[in-house]
Write a protein that binds this DNA or RNA. Structure first.
Lengths: 212, 212, 212, 212
DNA sequence: CATGAATGAGAATTCATTCAT
DNA sequence: GATGAATGAATTCTCATTCAT
């Protein structure tokens, strides 16, 4: 949660609409150029105003990043929590998590891309402590589900489960780097194909024996 | 292994040794903090010298990045070309490319991480035109092999082949973000497990029932 | 008159006024210390602001130089073109060009001094290509007029005309190195004396024969 | 006179030949690019050595400049003093000074060009105090001779004599900016033509009518 | 709400100079 | 005498941020 209770301004008037608009613009630029390489002037240009004017709406460039990421993560966890609390089996949970993830990518493509690129070096800053917490819950959710699946015999036991965790996790999220909302595939369709690959592999199975 | 041992100087040697040492140091910092967030002072600190001194060896911060990336890509393509010229079947080619990729990650972890994070916005600059060329050859190699495999009936025909291409490509390379050389798994072992997941999936196959 | 009175701000005005003010200040410092020896900090000091603030108004130190020189040359050529298009005889043209030149020195003393000192090594840079063009037109105007005068019998035929050209040209422009606007001589008066020297020489003519 | 008695090195071996050679090289580069814009590396390049190596021969970049200028001025004053002590009339003295000046330009073109461009802002530095002294003697020599000539009735009395002084002085010395030794005119020939222009003017004199 | 102008803390880079070899 | 590697101070330029209007 980004610094709640800011001293002054912030959310005066013009409503949350304008704020959201500006954040979307900022997110787009951050995603395209990287946070550090993005100047507030570029954001302002993209928003059709001057750099100084942004400071009426936001405390700092960092607080924009903060708000972008925390908004995204809040929504993500709303979705994830719904899935995790639904009492599904391991395989169904994985399927639901992947599908939910692609929906989030569809909705927050820029934020996801920013998260991918920047979270690594943001975790050190106290302000972004919630990223660490999120990563912990992430691992808990995915790794736990995989372990449950191995125990239940629905996921292979011959694989290093941490490696599998990273494999599945990365497989989903890097898609944000090329995904464009409104493209030919819906998030659900992409999720279906990804799941098919991850669960069953890309190799054609011989009639008798599989594996390598 | 970049910059192993000795945090500071061992500048006994003169010529290209020192250069390589410094580049390894720089790559490490770039990978850890991102290119833009890395100041030359940080690199110099890590190398045990003053910021200005780096300019005796390199023209600019950008030229360090350039040399890091081009050196990596040159070595990568040496390996890839050997694989592609070996006359292997599609499945064996994929296996060899993946294995070779993990070996490169093992050898150039920092460079790979940098490539992942920065190449997207470097491609616009003429100086880094070779990145575009490399990406083209990449697609040619991976996508071509996958298509050949589909035609040969060794890879599934029911998947969008471009999606599969991105899936395999990204899945392998993002591993650089968490891989640590000298860890418990050798590159070959990681490659083996990855290939097993990619080719056969992580789901246990029921004796009769397949997919979802 | 550049930067008259008020050492510091009078930044009541907004737009192009301020720009012109700053350029006048910069020109003064460039002329006094040389372009290379002038730091932007010195300019900023003279303008009563911080070095970085100059970059709100100008792209670079070089672009200030550029604007100073091109503004001067534009005005110069306006004056010269008027003279050259007036259909005067060679002697009257030379007289008018010299007079016009001293007026320009009076108005743009700093710019002229900069031009004298710096143009030689600026001509190599593409950005200052207009200097070459200007020099060409310069030669065309002065040399052409002298040649016409020799042909018409109003200028001596026994002198190397290129040497004469350089003599007249230099004679006029070096004055910028010592001329101070507001001094005891008006530009027109200086022009008159210069012309008298250049046209008739400084030697008293013997009653019968002149020359050496 | 440049800082006599330098602490160490300076003039060890290799003789004054090498030293002179290096100074000539440096002078050439200073003249072409300006003192400030000339890096010691450029000088070293032109001399076929590395920048650091110059410090075996000279204390500093400034001391090179110092030695170049003082050597030139010493030689100049040797020549001037010979002229001034010869007991010539005003007109003959001017003629001899101009001729001597063109000879010096021929011999020390680079030094003269440097002197022209840099002396203005060097005079402030104590180290270059001899420039001020030289300028004083200069004025004494030229202005004195002109005044003597006016008194004697050989130079025109209707001209501002200080203006005439600057006119003659500058006109001669700026020639260094375009003069190339070994060109088609010898220094003596150029001197002859210059004197002819300065003394008698460039205008053809009507049989009866004089000036304008 | 937005602008225009400025601030001030770095950033990359340059370069004269030093010095051990 | 010369080299190679470094130093450290200065320089140009960038940019997040402030604030009076």
């Amino acid at each position: 949660m980004p610094n709640t209770a800011s001293k002054k301004k912030t959310q005066v008037s013009g409503g949350p609409e304008r704020r959201r608009e500006l954040l979307d613009t900022a997110a787009e630029v951050f995603a395209a150029q990287g946070y550090n390489a993005t100047t507030v002037r570029k954001i302002a240009d993209a928003a059709g105003m001057l750099a100084g004017s942004l400071y009426y709406h936001f405390d700092s460039k960092e607080s924009m990043l903060d708000e972008i990421l925390s908004t995204f993560l809040n929504e993500l966890w709303e979705g994830y929590d719904a899935v995790l609390g639904a009492g599904l089996g391991p395989r169904e949970t994985i399927e639901a998590l992947v599908t939910e993830s692609f929906r989030e990518i569809d909705r927050h493509r820029a934020a996801v891309a920013i998260y991918q690129k920047e979270s690594q070096h943001l975790v050190d800053q106290p302000r972004f402590g919630y990223l660490v917490e999120s990563q912990r819950r992430f691992e808990e959710a995915w790794l736990g589900t995989l372990e449950r699946g191995v125990a239940d015999g629905v996921f292979r036991a011959d694989l290093d489960v941490r490696l599998t965790y990273r494999f599945v996790r990365d497989t989903v999220w890097v898609a944000a780097s090329w995904y464009r909302p409104g493209g030919q595939h819906s998030p659900e369709e992409i999720a279906r194909q990804y799941l098919s690959m991850v669960l069953d592999g890309i190799a054609v199975r011989g009639p008798g024996a599989g594996g390598s």
